[in-house]
């Protein structure tokens, strides 16, 4: 309870005392935006942690070896994540439902265990020391980015592009009958999601002294998924609220901090079994196996 009292009575003291928590909430909010974009277009992709890793490693490696200013490093990191998102999306987005989820999990772990741990430039298992780390200065860009990204993605959902995503999510077959190029729009969503996740990864390096490969495993993606499930994905605010709530929860109820995952698990089960699946965009019945996906609309 003190947590809230301080928030209102002494906001400056609150900020100073909880800086790292606030930064983490901001990063998680951006990750929530990233997973929201793919959810909104009806795809359960779990590659976010992988794109984070690309953004993070690119930023740190560039600041280690190149004289470019930090914002450029971060931008390149995010763009590289988007580019790799495009290449991964080409084969993977033909899958759907459970298969899409598994393939993207495979991507995350193949990237971490297969590439990052085997390429000397990434420091392999040791991770990398970040020369440009600035835990205090790093908070500001995060706090600025969250509202801007929220606004952009919120606007995006109201444009022609966003309406096409919503249509695809609700019913792919009907969407294509309306002239919507389903594979192309899915790809746009996937690439934007990768871009945002890569950006979050880049921002996060700024507040950490180390880039640690274990941070970018499937566990991280599952955590991001939890934000979306708890907050609902009918609009971009849902996952952000989920991220803020779940990141702050262990701080609010200290006695549960150790059992954080138990609480998360219970919340996940309650939310998914008790509330209507309408609020979760990926849970539309059009999800089927990839080799059944060529099925035409039911005949008489």
């Amino acid at each position: 309870m003190d947590f809230f009292i301080q928030l209102f009575t002494d906001p400056v003291g609150f900020y100073n005392q909880h800086e790292l928590l606030i930064a983490q909430i901001g990063i998680n909010a951006i990750l929530a935006i990233s997973i929201f974009v793919t959810f909104y277009s009806g795809q359960l992709t779990l590659a976010n942690a992988g794109f984070m890793a690309i953004g993070a490693y690119t930023t740190v490696i560039m600041s280690l070896y190149l004289p470019t200013p930090l914002p450029v490093d971060m931008l390149v990191g995010a763009l590289l994540a988007a580019a790799i998102g495009f290449l991964v999306g080409l084969p993977v987005l033909r899958l759907r439902g459970v298969f899409l989820a598994i393939a993207t999990i495979g991507f995350v772990e193949a990237l971490r265990l297969g590439v990052i741990l085997n390429v000397p430039i990434t420091g392999e298992g040791q991770g990398l020391k970040n020369p440009s780390a600035d835990p205090l200065g790093g908070i500001l860009p995060i706090l600025i980015s969250v509202p801007i990204l929220t606004y952009l993605v919120w606007r995006l959902t109201h444009t022609r592009l966003g309406q096409a995503w919503a249509a695809i999510r609700e019913d792919e077959l009907a969407a294509s009958s309306n002239g919507i190029n389903v594979p192309a729009y899915k790809m746009v969503a996937f690439v934007i999601s990768a871009l945002v996740a890569g950006y979050a990864g880049a921002l996060e390096t700024h507040i950490n002294f180390f880039v640690d490969p274990t941070e970018y495993s499937v566990t991280r993606t599952i955590q991001i998924l939890t934000f979306a499930v708890v907050g609902g994905t009918t609009n971009v605010i849902g996952p952000i609220v989920g991220a803020v709530f779940l990141t702050a929860l262990p701080e609010i109820v200290r006695q549960f901090a150790a059992y954080r995952d138990v609480v998360n698990g219970i919340i996940l089960i309650l939310v998914i079994t008790l509330t209507s699946s309408d609020r979760l965009a990926v849970c539309t019945p059009s999800m089927t196996c990839p080799w059944k996906s060529r099925k035409a609309p039911s005949s008489a």
């Binding site: 969407a175 009958s177 039911s298």
Partner: peptide, 21 residues
């Protein structure tokens, strides 16, 4: 479609807007 395929969670207006793509 024979079996209705509306965008069930979108409003009527949004359904038509998607159709205007």
């Amino acid at each position: 479609f024979q079996t209705l395929r509306l965008y069930r969670n979108l409003t009527a207006i949004e359904n038509v807007l998607a159709g205007m793509h």
